[in-house]
């Protein structure tokens, strides 16, 4: 985002406004992605001849807290053409089924991109960027 110059020292109202802007921008971006995926799946189903190239990939999850993981999985499950299949017990590896994943590595990169955008939007704006990563509270 060009209008969002990372997290620097800022007052609380400024940080709140920046966070609200990030969440809104991410929501808009996801809406576009969601509608585009809907059209793709509808066209796939309604035109004659199947061109599905399904693949099952395992994605290393960057999300840390249960809330982040749950949001990420909901976003994947809400987008047509992608479907979370299984999350391992440590919440580290997510198995995802993609409908149009002719290139599985590109598909995985796309999921990582979505997750990073989501984390940028969800995590609080802090003076130091390292403070943004929440504690890992999973069982180890």
């Amino acid at each position: 985002m060009t209008t969002d110059p990372g997290a620097g020292p800022a007052s609380l109202p400024q940080r709140s406004a920046r966070r609200a802007w990030r969440v809104t921008a991410f929501a808009a971006r996801f809406l576009v992605r969601f509608l585009r995926a809907n059209v793709a799946v509808a066209r796939e189903v309604l035109t004659p001849g199947l061109q599905v190239a399904p693949a099952v990939v395992v994605v290393a999850v960057h999300s840390r807290t249960p809330f982040e993981v749950a949001t990420f999985m909901s976003l994947i499950a809400l987008t047509p053409g992608t479907l979370p299949i299984e999350l391992d017990r440590d919440r580290r590896l997510l198995t995802v089924h993609g409908m149009h994943a002719g290139d599985p590595d590109a598909f995985r990169a796309e999921l990582h991109e979505l997750e990073d955008q989501m984390l940028t939007a969800l995590r609080p704006v802090t003076p130091r960027p390292d403070d943004r990563v929440p504690d890992d509270d999973r069982r180890s």
Partner: peptide
């Protein structure tokens, strides 16, 4: 949707032959 997919996975539902890659 996730619960159904997980149930399919756990009950060993087969993937279509067209599947490009299977990492599960």
């Amino acid at each position: 949707g996730y619960k159904i997919a997980e149930a399919a996975h756990r009950s060993g539902a087969p993937l279509a032959p067209a599947t490009v890659r299977d990492e599960r």
